[in-house]
């Protein structure tokens, strides 16, 4: 089954297909959006200037990916892309909890930011590994417009994964504080990594309709890469994929998400009618 147009999706006989597709698009959009926002908070604070160039470029690309998914949702009648990004409350956001978490204590503007670079590297590495496999799968999605976007996104994200993989391997391979902090960050991120890999309550429908590979298959591919990495780096595999704070796909979130949305939508909320 291939669906090539919005009209087909909106055909009443495809109501279940549409529900699964819309859910998936929100997950993809919100994930890219939140990790980009957390990345943007690092501007000017990363370890060195070349990293500032690199990380902001990655963030800009990733924000672009979320914008395209919001655009696909707009085409399906979900509302304006700008509003979907800015105006939705926490309870309807579908991003993984791991991605909404603050970068560390403090704040880039109000208090001294004591952001955790190790956690940032781990979170981004896990994210890009997960994204790589999702995007590869989406290239054969039954929803043709999404498959086309996936081809485009993949051509950009190859470099993102390469970047975070380099940081991940080098910091873990270093002796002393770097390795210790990376181990602690892996342990922390692993407690929520299950939420990153979840496809939410429509997981079965997504797979049945050929929108994306099943959650189990995607999980397996993710785990294989991480197992390979930890073996190479002489680390213990962290074990069971944790989901301690719940599943963001189902609307479970932490106060960090509200703080993020309030900040990123502050200008938008002054006058939502202003075009961006």
């Amino acid at each position: 089954m291939k669906i090539t147009s919005v009209n087909e999706v909106n055909d009443p006989k495809n109501v279940d297909y549409k529900r699964a597709l819309v859910d998936l698009l929100y997950q993809l959009a919100d994930d890219d959006f939140l990790i980009s926002y957390r990345g943007s908070e690092w501007l000017g604070l990363v370890p060195h200037i070349e990293e500032d160039v690199a990380y902001s470029s990655i963030v800009q690309n990733t924000m672009g990916h979320s914008a395209v998914y919001y655009q696909l949702l707009e085409e399906l009648g979900e509302g304006k892309a700008d509003d979907l990004a800015h105006a939705r409350t926490e309870s309807v956001r579908k991003n993984a909890i791991l991605l909404e978490e603050v970068n560390g204590t403090g704040h880039w503007l109000y208090q001294e930011p004591m952001y955790d670079w190790a956690f940032t590297v781990v979170r981004n590495y896990f994210y890009e590994v997960m994204k790589k496999h999702k995007i590869e799968s989406l290239k054969t999605s039954s929803y043709e417009p999404l498959a086309q976007v996936a081809v485009k996104v993949q051509s950009e994200t190859i470099y993102h994964l390469m970047h975070w993989r380099t940081w991940f391997y080098q910091l873990v391979s270093a002796e002393g504080e770097a390795r210790d902090r990376m181990k602690a960050a892996i342990e922390k991120a692993w407690k929520d990594v299950g939420g990153l890999l979840s496809l939410g309550q429509n997981r079965q429908a997504m797979a049945n309709f050929g929108l994306i590979d099943s959650e189990d298959v995607l999980k397996e591919r993710f785990v294989a890469v991480i197992k390979d990495a930890v073996a190479h780096l002489n680390l213990d595999y962290p074990g069971e994929l944790g989901m301690e704070r719940g599943d963001g796909r189902n609307g479970n979130h932490t106060p960090d998400l509200k703080e993020a949305i309030d900040t990123l939508a502050e200008v938008y909320n002054l006058n939502p009618a202003v075009p961006w």
Binding site: S57, Q60, E156
Partner: peptide
């Protein structure tokens, strides 16, 4: 190659 990422998305340093 100093940096695969550059001043804009399409350029490297």
């Amino acid at each position: 190659l100093e940096n695969i990422f550059g001043p804009s998305a399409c350029r490297s340093l």
